[in-house]
């Protein structure tokens, strides 16, 4: 029983962080109709920014979520503006090839710059645990990571619904032509959306760096997790990313109790297959972008 509760709690914490890992992926898919296979590489980019800042300045990885987000925002904005924008109207197959290629380039650059080895960012407290009754332990690192991640994800949702910029992004995702008729510059909105998505990934990566080891090869698992969370939550639905993250986190945590470590990705993938068969609109399932119209 203790073990089950422990695994569930771990799963929820991990899931909170997964929500932040995936929310940008879901946003880009929902707004731009681009499945960004390089998203996982952005997450790792954030982790390596945090690693560098730790080695150079001794910065805490949770503090580095901010500079990691800033660096990745700039990178994402430029990549969209000068690369992805060229193919944003192309069939999804073309954008898949482009982002797949981008993923390979970024992953290999990480290998060259940071070696293919596993790295971790030491902190004085992340491994210490909060002890709860019933012999349940919660490592501080995972707790802080989950709380920060959920807070950032919720802030993003409010940003989208409440601010002028957020509203223009939502509108462009629903009907680009109509948004342009409102005077919204779609190109700029797309670049901004991609930048925000990369920033979220970067912040998530810095937090991941505080709680686990990572290597460039992890880019693909982060992309896979993002894919599963986005589909679980419903594309472009940012609350959905939160539910999706929590569900995936718990399922993977239960799975890891029963299966060996490398099988966890298989659990994520199985969840995706089951979901697509049973409820393709996702758990949250609001057809927010159902009425996509092209101009």
């Amino acid at each position: 029983m203790t073990q089950f509760v422990q695994a569930t709690l771990y799963g929820l914490l991990q899931g909170g962080l997964l929500a932040l890992v995936a929310v940008g992926f879901s946003l880009v898919w929902g707004v731009m109709n681009v499945v960004n296979l390089a998203h996982g590489a952005f997450v790792l980019g954030g982790a390596y920014v945090a690693l560098e800042l730790h080695d150079a300045l001794g910065l805490d990885p949770f503090v580095s979520m901010v500079p990691a987000a800033a660096v990745l925002f700039a990178l994402g904005y430029l990549i969209q503006r000068y690369l992805v924008n060229l193919v944003v109207n192309a069939p999804i197959f073309i954008t898949l090839i482009l982002t797949f290629g981008l993923e390979m380039v970024l992953e290999n650059l990480l290998r060259v710059w940071f070696t293919p080895d596993y790295q971790s960012i030491p902190t004085g407290y992340a491994q210490d645990s909060l002890r709860l009754p019933g012999d349940i332990r919660i490592p501080y690192g995972k707790l802080i990571a989950a709380l920060l991640a959920v807070a950032v994800t919720v802030a993003l949702v409010y940003f989208m619904r409440r601010t002028r910029t957020g509203l223009s992004i939502l509108a462009t995702g629903m009907d680009r032509g109509a948004a342009r008729l409102m005077g919204v510059k779609a190109r700029h909105v797309y670049a901004l959306t991609f930048g925000i998505a990369a920033a979220m990934a970067g912040a998530a990566g810095a937090a991941e760096g505080a709680v686990r080891t990572f290597s460039p090869a992890d880019a693909r698992s982060f992309t896979l997790f993002s894919f599963v969370v986005a589909v679980l939550g419903g594309l472009g639905n940012m609350w959905g990313a939160l539910y999706g993250g929590l569900v995936l986190g718990v399922v993977m945590s239960w799975g890891s109790q029963l299966l060996s470590g490398t099988m966890v990705n298989a659990v994520a993938f199985a969840l995706l297959v089951v979901l697509l068969a049973v409820r393709p609109q996702g758990i949250a399932g609001k057809a927010f972008y159902a009425s996509r119209v092209e101009v």
């Binding site: 939502l170 509108a171 009907d175 609001k286 927010f288 009425s291």
Partner: peptide, 11 residues
């Protein structure tokens, strides 16, 4: 105001 109105229906 285009053909079909093109409101943002989910908003």
């Amino acid at each position: 105001v285009p053909e079909g109105r093109r409101l943002f229906p989910g908003l």
